[in-house]
Computed example of a mutant assay.
Amino acid sequence: MDDTDRKLLSALRHDARASLSDLALELGVSRTTVRSRIERLQRAGEILGFTVVLKEDTARDPVRGLMMLGIEGRGADRIVRQLNGLSAVRATHTTNGRWDVIVEIGTPTLEAFDAVLAQIRRLDGIVSSETNLLLSTRKAAG
């Protein structure tokens, strides 16, 4: 991946609906170059897809947060399966460092959020947790 690819990916993150002509103008290359680079990045697995974020997607979860979990022993796979079965869990991420799993949670109220936290903390094998509420999102991942 070269500098032009990185600039193209940055432009697409900003506006995935930008026309090939607009992208070409912004990058100082031809439309054909933009199209072939996008196709190559898709084939290489760098671009996995394009998505739309709807207003209702953010409105349905006015209370959102990240819960970091420490897991005892080798129970991470089992716990991730249990987490993914909870309706308030939007995503689970395994990670390295202090925490074993990071859970994205979305609920309609603080009370519901608190109930989900309590439910997760009771799962067998979770030994520690830390939770942060998300106050605002300036750029959503797609």
Rank of each mutant, 00 (worst) to 15 (best):
T33W: 00
R121M: 02
E130F: 11
G85T: 02
I120D: 01
A44M: 08
E111D: 14
I79F: 12
L83S: 10
L117N: 09
R31C: 04
T51K: 00
R138K: 13
L48D: 04
G70Q: 14
N96G: 09
E56N: 08
I47Y: 07
H93T: 07
E39L: 10
G70A: 15
K139E: 09
P62D: 03
L134N: 02
G45K: 06
M67K: 08
G97S: 12
L48V: 15
T58F: 15
L41S: 08
E72Q: 12
R60C: 00
M1L: 07
Q42A: 11
W99V: 10
I38L: 10
D114G: 11
S128K: 12
I102F: 10
E46R: 06
R121P: 00
V127F: 04
A11V: 12
G73I: 08
A88P: 02
T137C: 00
D22P: 09
G73R: 04
E39N: 13
E72I: 13
S136E: 14
E39F: 09
I105V: 15
M1E: 11
T95H: 05
D57K: 01
R6W: 01
A24Y: 02
L123W: 07
L20H: 15
I38P: 15
R64I: 11
T32H: 07
F113G: 00
T107F: 01
G45P: 05
A140H: 14
S30G: 11
L86W: 03
S128Q: 08
R121D: 05
S30H: 12
L27I: 13
L8K: 04
A88M: 02
R37F: 09
D2H: 05
R64C: 07
R43L: 12
G125D: 03
D114A: 10
A88V: 06
